[in-house]
Design a protein around this nucleic acid. Sequence first.
DNA 1: ATTTGCATTAACCAAATGGTTAAACCAGTT
DNA 2: AACTGGTTTAACCATTTGGTTAATGCAAAT
Lengths: 201, 201
Amino acid sequence: MPAEIHTPEKILIAARKIFIDKGLDGARMQDIANEAGINKAMLHYYFRNKEKLFETIFDQLANEFLPKLFSILELEIPLFEKIEKFCSAYIQQEIETPYVPMFIVKEINRDPDLFLKKVLRGRNHPLVIAMVQIKQEMAQGNIKPVEPVQLLLNIISLCIFPFLVQPMVQIITGIEREQFVKLMEQRKVLVPQLIIQSIKL
Amino acid sequence: MPAEIHTPEKILIAARKIFIDKGLDGARMQDIANEAGINKAMLHYYFRNKEKLFETIFDQLANEFLPKLFSILELEIPLFEKIEKFCSAYIQQEIETPYVPMFIVKEINRDPDLFLKKVLRGRNHPLVIAMVQIKQEMAQGNIKPVEPVQLLLNIISLCIFPFLVQPMVQIITGIEREQFVKLMEQRKVLVPQLIIQSIKL
DNA sequence: ATTTGCATTAACCAAATGGTTAAACCAGTT
DNA sequence: AACTGGTTTAACCATTTGGTTAATGCAAAT
């Protein structure tokens, strides 16, 4: 009667953890089965093979992580406000699922074209839309002249990178996860400030 | 008589390529042997086993990449000048060996403690030294009050991250490696500007 | 020419690993 | 009670993979 967790769901949960932890190559089907507390054959029964299972996890992660952010980029709001919203949402998202950025960056490097195809599904890339908006604002003289690519690279770098080196940051500064999160919360404000200051007239 | 490439060197060159390309788990000893054009047994003859070979490559990469940057952090020069030198050298380094940052970030996440031990070899971490300098400049009222960790995170994020997503950047913007390098050259100036502007009074 | 000792190779081995299968389990149906 | 269908398991299989070994090559020393 209570929300029982059925086998396919158990598998997904376990697979997500193991794949994120060890990557596609490092993950063992047996590890996933153990983590899920089921027989290894079940993995193949429900997901055919390792590749398919990985693909399923990838789709899941990409689709729970990226759409919210993309939708912000597509909003029709002033640039500065958009930057604030985007950074804040991005960082919040990473706080909630801190392992996803590393997973995504690894995937980008494993097969960039495939990654884009999976993530975009034919749509125009939201980043391209953002670049257009930046150019417009520049043409209207609302912001300093900058290379749009550079601006976007700056924003995204400042949002993502700290999470990619989180373990290192914690060791060097001697802080715990909890305090690391506080640092990142601060960045929700710091990063937009830094960026906006660099382009406002 | 000419600079012949002997077997151990051939192995190192091949192993570096394969490990960087596929990671520790994805790399096959046979791949490395093929790439080097030698018998697989040679790998074990000279480097004992996969782990040791990987470790050797790791040490090589870390030691040709990091020392220069660390030495800049330890220079006794004004903060702004240090930031300029550091970013410029960092980005230049990455232009020359674009695969290394990804390799290092992966390693950081594989085993953060081991990574630090290997890289620091007992010394004080240069980043800690930099943090002290930032605090001093702040106390002397030379720069705006900022969290030193945040400042360092900003600098490093802006220098490294674009290289981690290079394939993606190239696809989205439709540029070639050559033009990507030009973008990064620009950043040698852009990044210090952005950072310094954010802390100068 | 023979010996010596490192370098190299082909063949081999054991363990790990992704994947399969045949049988058992178990709820609901007839 | 027997049947039916999806589910689960233990045992098994073929291949891959890291690693070993015994034999061979080969250059320098004797």
